[in-house]
Structure formats: C-alpha cells, structure tokens
C-alpha cells in the first residue's frame, strides 16, 4: 500500500498543516510517512503545497509526479493537479473558491464548499480540515478517528482551544464522502 497525497492552495489556507495532521495520523497508525513542502521565497497569498506519502514499506522518492489523491484549495491548484491525479484516485475540490468542474470520469471528485462551510462554522481557517475530512473518508486508508487522535496528541498547547472545532470540521467534510 502506498498513498501519495498533494495538498495545495495559497498561503494562509492551512494546506501545510492539513498535510502534517495527515502525516501524524499515519505515523501513529504505524505507517512509514514523509511530508515535504514546496518551499522557497514564499509569502502569504503565494502558493503553499505539500506532498504526503503514506506507505507500508520504506519510502523511496519523497516526491511524485502523479499523486493518488489531492486536495485543491484554489484555482491555480485545481489547474495544476486535477489533470495529475492518477486514474482511480481521489480529488477534493474546495468548490467555494473553484467554480470549474472536473471532466475526468476515471477519478472520484468530491466538491466540498470548504470555505463557505468554515465561515458558517465560525472560522474560515478550518476549511482545510473540512477538505481533509472528505479526503480521508474517501481514501479509506486511515479511519477518521486517527486524525482526531493525531490532533489531540500533537496539537501545540496554544492551539488546543481549537480542538473541538477542528474535529467538527473533519466530521463535516467526511459527510461529503459518505
């Protein structure tokens, strides 16, 4: 088993953090895992993307050209990764900010209005967790519960007040994949 997941959006959307939560959950579940960000002279509003590889054997290449799944949070990410997802894979589209639809019929596409739902729930910054919930539910590699536990086990002390909202966001997203 090996899943290769790209989480992509612009700086401030929490794509790197969403990938880290996934990586923590995979590690706690006993898998090999790598998390690698695109990095460079970046700024808020610039591109922000990470690749997470989850495997039951030692991970070779930490980068991949064709992911088995992707979360795209904004239009440039949709344009870059909608065509790249491997046949049979999963694509989660933050439909609040991405008007276009995928024309592919060989992948599972989930349209999740992450930004709108997050705003309704009181904090636009949890759109990442809503999309992550949808992805994890659709992938089926890790039970959603492992992500909640990862947040509990690894969230920094100063962010712990956000724990209930993050869990709620994961559940909200998962509904889109059920």
């Amino acid at each position: 088993m090996q899943e290769e997941i790209i989480v992509s959006g612009f700086g401030g959307q929490g794509t790197l953090f969403a990938g880290q939560v996934l990586a923590y959950a995979a590690m706690d579940a006993g898998y090999h895992v790598t998390w690698i960000p695109s990095y460079g002279p970046e700024m808020r509003g610039g591109k922000a993307r990470c690749t997470v590889i989850i495997s039951d054997e030692e991970i070779g290449s930490p980068l991949i050209r064709r992911p088995s799944a992707a979360i795209v949070m904004n239009i440039p990410s949709m344009e870059a990764f909608e065509p790249a997802v491997r046949s049979g894979g999963v694509l989660v589209v933050n439909s609040s900010l991405i008007p276009q639809r995928s024309e592919r019929d060989d992948i599972r596409v989930l349209y999740v209005p992450g930004t709108e739902l997050a705003t309704e729930m009181g904090n636009v910054r949890i759109a990442n967790m809503i999309c992550l919930g949808a992805l994890v539910q659709a992938l089926g590699v890790l039970p959603l519960r492992t992500l909640e536990e990862a947040l509990e086990n690894h969230l920094a002390e100063r962010h712990r007040k956000w724990l209930p909202l993050n869990k709620e966001a994961l559940q909200k997203g998962a509904e889109f994949a059920r």
């Binding site: 895992v33 790598t34 998390w35 690698i36 990095y39």
Partner: peptide, 10 residues
C-alpha cells in the same frame, strides 16, 4: 540538501 532539511519524517 534542502529537501532533507525541509521535509518531515518520523
């Protein structure tokens, strides 16, 4: 190298 510096692993 930079990718080893920036990546995360257990």
């Amino acid at each position: 190298d930079g990718s080893l510096g920036q990546m995360m692993e257990p």
